[in-house]
Nucleic acid binder design. Structure first.
Lengths: 80, 80, 80, 80
DNA sequence: TCTTATTGTCCTCGAC
DNA sequence: GTCGAGGACAATAAGA
């Protein structure tokens, strides 16, 4: 079997990389949950906190989008 | 068969209502496409236009979200 | 500013038309959601309903395809 | 302002911790996407790959469940 | 074709 | 423990 399973091996490696990343991702998601729990234990309202996080994310996205649009304009006008 | 198919009839009515709405929705989506096509025919870059529409939508969402959050704060503080 | 902003004005009009249409579309999407919610409140399983709607749409699509094909044949044969 | 904003500061810290974690999470999600893209560039079908990953996750879950059940039995029987 | 945008489904989470 | 909302993910459709 010294040959022919190259493709299978490569696939397996891809799969394993993905699984490792997914695990990391899950770990971080758990960390996020912990922070909310800790905040709640300190008397904060998690619903409001989630709203704040959501708002800030939206604002950041809008800003990024605006920057990209401005860049598009610049290019269209041949500036910089 | 004057009886017993009440449920089936009701389900059919729900399905038909949904299908009617979906058709309307599709019609509007087609209208949007037409507007983009018309704009393109007038020399506008549709990709940029889509970016503008997206940006304005994001900004509006952020604004709405901010308003809702402010309202939450107001209530929490017993104001108004 | 009686001049030169014609293009900008026209663009703005296009954008506004699109945004208006998008809003209508969203309104209809909300209506659809309401119908599903109402059906659920009447004891129907929305997942199944969605499957039905999807199936009927596919069938309609298949029928339309068949009609188009038939039309193609007709034309190829010089029949009305 | 040496006083009274303790709560606000603490809240801000919680929010920032969450945002930092969310960013990390997004970074990893992007990494996953990259791996899929790389696999695709090597001739693999990503849809199939996703199915494999999903299946293995389910199998792991099933195994964990079985282990937990076994543990429950052990405890019920007073075995180490 | 190949990417990007939208849509739909699933699943988690907090509230009641 | 059920419900509804929200977010994440996957599938499909559209556009370049």
């Amino acid at each position: 079997m010294s040959e022919g399973n190259v493709a299978a091996d490569q696939l397996r490696l891809f799969i394993e990389r993905i699984e490792r990343l997914e695990e990391e991702k899950k770990g971080i998601a758990d960390d996020v949950k912990d922070v909310y729990a800790e905040a709640k234990a300190n008397g904060y309202d998690t619903k409001t906190m989630r709203a704040i996080v959501r708002l800030r994310r939206m604002e950041k996205h809008a800003r990024d989008e605006a920057d990209a649009l401005l860049e598009t304009y610049r290019n269209a006008l041949g500036l910089a």
